[in-house]
């Protein structure tokens, strides 16, 4: 894949190692926090799978844009992984918050967690669709593609989290 070989060849070891270190540190700290707070294996698996999916979707988006649409992946596309990850954090944290506040209540059940995540995913999706569409209208060319790609990838995340939770708690 040309994108990856170009990145591997042109990037310095400092760039590669600092980005790798950043990713690993964030991943370990967030998963550790989830473990300490919940001690729930299913939620930890859900979080790990969600973060990995967000990484796969981001890389997949860039590959599709480059290979299928012949789009040049420029420096602005570096923002997509971070923005998508921030949306993922919001989705996971909302689920985590609901779980920790209701786990000791009588009404708590996996179905209530799924329902809450569905409600949150719907709200997140409305925000993402409307706000990203609104700003993309005023952009042209490479910026338009960039914003649409970012919005589309971010939109996948809450629904992926919902599907993952549905699968984990089936």
């Amino acid at each position: 894949m040309e994108i990856f070989t170009t990145v591997w060849k042109d990037w310095t070891m400092y760039q590669k190692s600092s980005l790798l270190l950043m990713g690993i540190c964030i991943f370990i700290i967030l998963i550790s926090c989830i473990y300490i707070i919940t001690r729930n294996r299913r939620l930890i698996i859900h979080a790990i799978a969600s973060i990995l999916c967000s990484a796969i979707f981001t890389v997949g988006t860039m590959v599709i844009l480059h290979v299928v649409f012949d789009e040049r992946i420029s420096y602005i596309y570096m923002l997509i992984p971070l923005v998508v990850f921030l949306v993922d954090i919001i989705s996971l944290s909302m689920n985590l918050g609901y779980y920790t506040s209701t786990r000791n209540k009588k009404s708590f059940s996996p179905i209530s967690v799924k329902k809450e995540l569905l409600r949150d995913s719907l709200q997140l999706s409305i925000f993402i669709i409307l706000l990203f569409s609104a700003i993309s209208v005023f952009m042209g060319g490479a910026l338009f593609t960039f914003v649409i790609a970012m919005g589309a990838t971010a939109l996948l995340i809450p629904w992926t989290n919902y599907l993952l939770l549905y699968w984990i708690y089936r």
């Binding site: 926090c33 921030l86 954090i89 944290s93 985590l96 918050g97 506040s101």
Partner: peptide
């Protein structure tokens, strides 16, 4: 209930 988690993770 999620405020502290969202803010901290961010």
């Amino acid at each position: 209930d999620s405020m502290i988690y969202i803010a901290t993770a961010f």
